[in-house]
Nucleic acid binder design. Structure first.
Lengths: 100, 100
DNA sequence: ATAGAGTAGTTTATATTATAAACCAAATTA
DNA sequence: TAATTTGGTTTATAATATAAACTACTCTAT
């Protein structure tokens, strides 16, 4: 009846990050922070979880002497997002009676 | 850019309950338990939260000597659900560039 | 050269949430 | 009348999310 919702994506911030990365392909830590309105600490933790899950690739560099964290969505991340969106349909369209 | 997701509904079980109640109008505790696959304890807690939020109405009766808990979606619940689904669109359709 | 403020994050501690286990009250069955 | 079952609730614990504090630098002004 109701599909499982990937717990990695069922988090407002992580979902926003993945959603954002799907549209922009690559983004800096601070850019994501601004767009999502997250605090740096929270974002740091959630990016770590997305990385651990293999949903994003994180590369750390230096730019103009400052540390720079770049994030990219992975194939697995795109697939998980699509699957998550698909699962949500089962909650949003309650009367799609496909024999439970 | 990303809309807030109502924390009351941003829970797999509570969302399933509300989704279910929107389609059936009224349901018994055990029916909801079966349909959602939740444990009784968890369901009891989450129904309490939905009730406290005013999203559902809970009436307790007796039927054939046994206690019977009936749940109905409220107007507020329907509205919150619609608002939640609407908010989700901002995550699912990342390129709907409506000036952040 | 060094104190103060700013950048870019990470770590840690705390609050919140979800879940499971234990419990309660009554009814049914053996 | 002693299990067992029904229909839950409460409580304890595990998992998650978030904020606050901290690290490690860099830049600027004195």
């Amino acid at each position: 009846m109701f599909k499982e919702l990937d717990p990695i994506l069922h988090s407002q911030l992580r979902l926003a990050v993945v959603s954002l990365l799907i549209s922009v392909k690559e983004a800096e830590f601070t850019f994501i922070k601004e767009k999502t309105g997250a605090t740096a600490g929270n974002l740091s933790v959630q990016l770590g979880k997305l990385k651990d899950a293999g949903y994003i690739d994180v590369t750390k560099q230096f730019k103009d002497n400052y540390p720079l964290t770049l994030c990219k969505i992975s194939k697995k991340g795109v697939e998980a997002f699509e699957e998550y969106v698909n699962a949500l349909q089962s909650y949003m369209k309650p009367n799609t009676d496909s024999k439970d």
